[in-house]
Design a protein around this nucleic acid. Structure first.
Lengths: 230, 230
DNA sequence: GAATTAATATGATTTACATCATGTTTTTCT
DNA sequence: AGAAAAACATGATGTAAATCATATTAATTC
C-alpha cells in the first residue's frame, strides 16, 4: 500500500520545471509580468485568508505551508525550492490564500500575476497538463498524510515524517533539521512533548542519533517497520 | 477561517459538467470511446492498488471514495452524481488507483479511457483549465477535512460531517442517511461506538432528531458552534 | 558577553477516547 | 415468514497521549 508509506507525506517534488513547457514568448511574458521577492529566514510569505493576486514559485529556499489553528497549526507540506505554491488560488470563486507560508531559510519567491498564469493555462495545453500533474501529485501526497495522521499512532507518525524528510527533502540519512520540535509536532499532529519523548525513544533504541539539530537515521529498516505498523 | 468550517469537508461539488467545454467532435470521441457500467448498491467500483486504465464519471448515484486501512478505512469523500473520479490516475508514473470506491445507491459510472482523456486535456486548454479547477476545489476540501480530523475532537468532527451531508449532499436539513454509523466513523476517524454515543448526545440536547436512518438537524446554530469550537 | 527569550527535556497527573462485553433492533437472505 | 446476519446501542474498563509543572540547555538580543 504505497499510500500509507512514508514517501508520500511531505512535499511537492516535481523535479522538472513546469516553465520548460512554455514558448520563448510565454517565458518572456512571465519574466516581465512577475517580480522576485527575497525573504529572510522565519518570514511570512503569505497569510491565510488574505487576498491572493498571484501564484508563487519558490526559486530558492525551504518553506512550510500550514493551516493556522488555535492553539496549534497544522503543517500541510514542507516545500523545497523549484516548486509552485498557492495554486489553489486559481480556483474560481476563491481569491484568498487557503494557508499561510513561512520560510525556514532565506528564500526567493517569484510572484506571478494570477491573470497571466490563467492566460498561459488557457493558451498552452501542455503547460496546463503539467500543472494537472503537479496538482495530482500533491493530492496523492495529501492522501498519504491523511492516512498517516488519522490511522497511525505517535511512533508511526513520527517515523513517517523522519523518513520523508530524509528521503524527499534532504536526500540523505544525515541532515541538519531547520525545523523545531514544535514544527515536527505541527507536522505530526501531536504535542511537542510527545515529539521529544518519541525522539528519545528512537535514540535509546539506536534507531536514530540526535545531536542538537543534527539528525542521523541509523536503522532504516526498523523505522520503515514502525512506519508500516503504525 | 473558511477552511475549518463544515462546508469544505465531504464532496466534490462542481455543478457544471466539465464536458460542456468539449467540441461536438470531442464529445463524440468520449461517447464512442467510453462505456457506461451500472452498479448495484454496495458494489465496488474500483479497488485501491489495482491498475487504473480509465477515468470515471459518476452519471448517477452516490458513492464513497476511501482508503483501505487495517482495521479501519478512511473515507476521503462522499461523492454524488455528475462528478469525475479517479483523476489522480492522470499523474504520470502512477497507473494504480490510490483509493477504493463503492456505491451507496444503484449507480451508473462512465469509464473513459485514460489516453483519450489525456488527449483531450492536451488539445483543449479550456477543458484542462476546468479540470484544474476541479482538482483545486477537491484539494481545498481535502485541507478542510485535514484540519477537522486532526485538530478537532469528536463532537466537532461529527458536527462537521452532519452539516456537510446536510448542506452539500442532501441539500436539506432532513434526510435519510444511506451511510451506516460505521461509515460515519470512517468519515470522522473515530470508533463506531463514539459516533453512536455522540449522536445520542446531540439528540438528548435537542440538536438533532434521529429516527432510525432518518436524520433532522434541529439546531443549526448550535451545530455550527460545536463545529467551530472543535 | 551578560541578559532575555526561545527551545529542549522529563516526570506527574489527567482525560478523551478506544476497546471490550453484551444485549437489542433492524435488515437481509432463502 | 422465519432464520441469520448486520447494524445499533450502552455500560464497564483500559490506555494512549495531552496537559501541567518545572528544569535545563541553546539561541537571540542589546
Amino acid at each position: 500500500m504505497p499510500l500509507s508509506g512514508p514517501d508520500t507525506c511531505v512535499s511537492f517534488l516535481y523535479e522538472l520545471s513546469c516553465f520548460d513547457l512554455l514558448t520563448p514568448q510565454e517565458k518572456e511574458l512571465i519574466d516581465t509580468q512577475s517580480v522576485l521577492v527575497n525573504y529572510k529566514k522565519g518570514e511570512i510569505v503569505c497569510k491565510q485568508g488574505s487576498f491572493a493576486s498571484h501564484i508563487m514559485y519558490l526559486e530558492k529556499g525551504l518553506v512550510k505551508i500550514y493551516l493556522e489553528g488555535n492553539p496549534k497549526d497544522l503543517i500541510l507540506t514542507i516545500t523545497p525550492q523549484k516548486n509552485l505554491m498557492g495554486l489553489q488560488a486559481l480556483f474560481e470563486g476563491n481569491n484568498t490564500f487557503l494557508y499561510s507560508i513561512s520560510t525556514y531559510t532565506d528564500s526567493s519567491v517569484r510572484l506571478i500575476d494570477i491573470q497571466i498564469f490563467k492566460q498561459l493555462l488557457k493558451q498552452n495545453p501542455l503547460f496546463a497538463y503539467r500543472i494537472i500533474n503537479i496538482l495530482n501529485e500533491s493530492t496523492s501526497q495529501s492522501y498519504g498524510r491523511f492516512f498517516s495522521l488519522t490511522q497511525k499512532q505517535l511512533h508511526g507518525r513520527l517515523a513517517d515524517i523522519l523518513l520523508c524528510l530524509s528521503r524527499k527533502i534532504f536526500k540523505s540519512e544525515s541532515f541538519d533539521l531547520p525545523l523545531t520540535r514544535s514544527d515536527l509536532s505541527d507536522l505530526t499532529s501531536m504535542s511537542t512533548e510527545s515529539v521529544i519523548r518519541i525522539m528519545k525513544d528512537f535514540k535509546d533504541d539506536g534507531i536514530i542519533d540526535i545531536n542538537n539539530k543534527s539528525i542521523t537515521l541509523l536503522d532504516l529498516p526498523r523505522l520503515d517497520s514502525i512506519s508500516a505498523k503504525g
